[in-house]
Design a protein around this nucleic acid. Sequence first.
DNA 1: GTCGACATGTAACCAGTTACATGATTAA
DNA 2: TTAATCATGTAACTGGTTACATGTCGAC
Lengths: 181, 181
Amino acid sequence: MRRPPTTTYAILGMLTFAERSGYELGKLIEISIGYFWSPAKSHIYAELRRLVELGWATQHEVEQDHRPDKRVYTITEKGHAALREWLNDPEVEPETFRSPLLLKLFFGDLMDPGALHAQIAEAKRQAEELLAELKAVEGRIEHEDSLRFPYMTLRCGLAHARATRRWARDTLKGLEERSAS
Amino acid sequence: MRRPPTTTYAILGMLTFAERSGYELGKLIEISIGYFWSPAKSHIYAELRRLVELGWATQHEVEQDHRPDKRVYTITEKGHAALREWLNDPEVEPETFRSPLLLKLFFGDLMDPGALHAQIAEAKRQAEELLAELKAVEGRIEHEDSLRFPYMTLRCGLAHARATRRWARDTLKGLEERSAS
DNA sequence: GTCGACATGTAACCAGTTACATGATTAA
DNA sequence: TTAATCATGTAACTGGTTACATGTCGAC
């Protein structure tokens, strides 16, 4: 039996902080690992079922007042062991990065200059938006020693958002200089 | 009929420089758009067949001496129009970025410190390798005015490789300081 | 009464990868 | 003769998304 896909371990890892329902995991992932690993909502529920099948988590229903009932998942010792085995495996799967914007830019000769400029400007705006978002998170977690490792991943995001913003700025400038002459 | 996936346009775009066979496209993509858009070999052949079906390219066999024959694809005027329509569409699909390394780091508390250090160190090594590769490409194309737009995409790759290297360096330092105390 | 947050899923689809299969030609 | 490059694909799989479906509960 092959090792399950990375998303399985992502969900499993999120259960190490506390037992949670699929819905709660979705909200949590969105503001944490979602920046570099973001499964669809329906995918989360599917993975939770797989975790139970594997014996890596157990489920139990929680009746709630004032809210619909929920199904809460708890990591097992077997799950912990599987997670550690994956974490310590020196073989790390390669990152994937795909950028439709860079792809378009590569063919920039064929583009309407106005459309190109607008699309890079929009990328710059998005980088700035992301940067503001990440800075806000940083303010909240930088001194939380228990979030030391999440903070390191945040620093990576900040570095890349800044690199993107600067690149977009420079590229726009280059585009404008050329169109002016 | 919906718009075909981005990979279709990637292949189509590569045909604007010259008519090419699937094999030639594979080699070319690897050293150009492959850094931010890299279809599998078999996928390239499949997309070429789709281009012909759509009337966006035509194919013809080329008999070769000293080498196996090949099937060469040429972009049509209809293909050019479709490509421009896609390029100028202000709606750009979002980038996707997935990092198993950051995912592991997020759960760093559960890792063996040695394994974590080794995995970040390996990421740093990979960033340096990529950086060297991109710098070599830069030296070859920076003054080629016809490669102005590809050069802009290269600058983005350089910025990100440098950001990754610096982040990995800083992170390793943080890890070492902590383990020393 | 309707909107939004809470809550869980199914079914259909699809983009893309992996492994496999085949064969020509050239250079060591 | 063996490896490397040139050359083209098929078939099976799979990881993952999208759209849909359903319903609870509280607040306005």
